[in-house]
Design a protein around this nucleic acid. Sequence first.
DNA 1: TGCCTGATTGCCT
DNA 2: GGCAATCAGGCAA
Length: 204
Amino acid sequence: MSRLLLGRRLPRELYELETPYLARLLLGKLLVHEAPGGRTAGRIVETEAYLSHRDPASHSARGETPRNAAMFGPPGHTYVYVSYGVHLCFNVVTAARGIGEAILVRALEPIDGLDLMRERRGVKSDVDLCSGPGKLTQAMGLTLALNGVDLVEGPLGIWEIEGLPVDDSEAVTGIVTSQRVGISQAADLPLRFYLQGNPHVSRR
DNA sequence: TGCCTGATTGCCT
DNA sequence: GGCAATCAGGCAA
């Protein structure tokens, strides 16, 4: 996918933008992982914002612990954690160091390295490769070893690409704002964002 | 120390 | 639609 050369990696300053605003801005951007086994990349189609102490659903709401320490780290780094003891969730740390805000990437549209994704996931349909937070970490080969790493440089990054090919199975008509998925605290806050009509969004 | 819950997924009925 | 898998953190005792 030589188109990558036409894009630019998102700069540090971008990750200091207001978290809900940035969650919308990340839609359509490309998450790229250069792993030893090969490159995988996916277009971000669904995100959720998690705020600091003012958001009881956020891992950071009760202060810093060894588990959520990366969430309090510098912006533009990752926060990866184990969910339900089984799956991993991938977050982008935002706001200044010590604040504790992040964006959960909930779904990707597979763009590059599809064969490697299929191998890792072992599913029949390509729609099942990255259509959920636990699915995409598996498909992209993300591990706990990538918790706290820098997205501005290194093997894992987010790119803005000119003319990125888009899934044409359904027309994308805009950005939808809704309630976050799978939480009970502050469930009414409109902090989930996804591309309307995109078949890779986790819940339609 | 022990119990309960959860930013989920996939298999079973 | 129901439910098990599987484990770390939070909180009660």
